[in-house]
């Protein structure tokens, strides 16, 4: 991509224009939540004051200051359990 487009590319608008879909592979996610933090950094969003509500997931939902959140789901299986990590996002960005 030529340099003149760097600004546009950094903002992600070109990706949004060309994007047909968003592939998410939760199988590879270890719920480190690096993306949850990185999204805040990228979008210059403040941290909210939260409390632990009795689980790892926090904040409990997307907010005006949180565009990307990992949802933790504990599920019983026939044998053992599953701990599923699902990414919830505003779906407005081109970089994610």
């Amino acid at each position: 991509m030529p340099n003149a487009n760097v600004k546009e590319r950094m903002s992600g608008t070109d990706v949004v224009k060309k994007r047909k879909g968003l592939m998410v592979t939760p199988d590879l996610c270890i719920a480190c939540r690096g993306c949850q933090s990185a999204c805040k950094q990228w979008n210059k969003l403040p941290g909210d004051k939260t409390l632990n509500s009795g689980e790892y997931e926090n904040p409990p939902n997307l907010t005006a200051n949180l565009y990307n959140q990992i949802h933790f789901i504990e599920k019983n299986k026939d044998v053992g359990i599953d701990w599923l990590f699902v990414r919830r996002a505003c779906m407005h960005c081109g970089e994610a």
């Binding site: 933090s37 941290g47 909210d48 939260t50 632990n52 009795g54 926090n58």
Partner: peptide, 12 residues
């Protein structure tokens, strides 16, 4: 770090 504290705010 407010972003980290937001995710894990309290001892559990």
């Amino acid at each position: 770090q407010p972003w980290q504290l937001e995710m894990q705010p309290q001892v559990f």
